[in-house]
């Protein structure tokens, strides 16, 4: 299945690689492209990126494990990054986080049974001015309350 997806991505990959002076510079972009389609970075994706960038696959793997925004295992359809930074702590994130966990019935690093959500506790996401906050998919949700969390989850069901 991944193969087919990656074959489709080949056309786009060619364009991406052409944008850079050095092929290896396209590593991050290609990883994101493939992860967006497949959900997480598989060994096949690493090999595919290696093929396009001419970066040895072991070094592609270094990149994947270095950055926390690449998933090394399947994530939920909607991935939640919940900020546990200092400001969010002062803003009382703990209560909200445990509410979220109870609601989803998962712990940090897990995926809900229906595969809809996954949760990751993150270090500061740089939105201290509106702590507590979390990132759902690509979007920041700020000044969280338990009620707000419920609404957000419902919207993503």
């Amino acid at each position: 299945m991944n193969r087919a997806i990656l074959n489709q991505l080949d056309v786009e990959a060619e364009k991406v690689v052409a944008k850079y002076d050095q092929k290896k510079a396209a590593t991050l972009t290609l990883l994101h492209m493939a992860q967006d389609k497949v959900g997480y970075v598989t060994p096949e994706i690493e090999a595919w990126v290696s093929k396009w960038t001419e970066v040895p696959v072991v070094h592609v793997h270094e990149v994947v494990t270095f950055y926390s925004m690449y998933h090394k295992k399947p994530a939920g359809k909607t991935h939640i990054r919940f900020c546990t930074g200092t400001s969010c702590a002062l803003g009382g994130y703990e209560k909200i986080l445990s509410h979220l966990k109870k609601k989803l019935n998962i712990q940090n690093g897990e995926v809900t049974k229906d595969g809809k959500f996954s949760l990751e506790e993150a270090e500061c996401l740089c939105a201290c001015e509106c702590a507590p906050m979390m990132q759902v998919g690509d979007k920041y949700h700020m000044d969280l309350t338990e009620k707000k969390v419920d609404q957000i989850l419902d919207a993503h069901k």
């Binding site: 060994p43 494990t65 270095f66």
Partner: peptide, 21 residues
């Protein structure tokens, strides 16, 4: 032969060969 890599980062960085190789 590009055998080794350093995976993860900071305190958790570890040296290994590519998984399965």
């Amino acid at each position: 032969t590009h055998d080794f890599g350093i995976f993860n980062r900071g305190d958790h960085a570890e040296l290994n060969i590519y998984p399965g190789q």
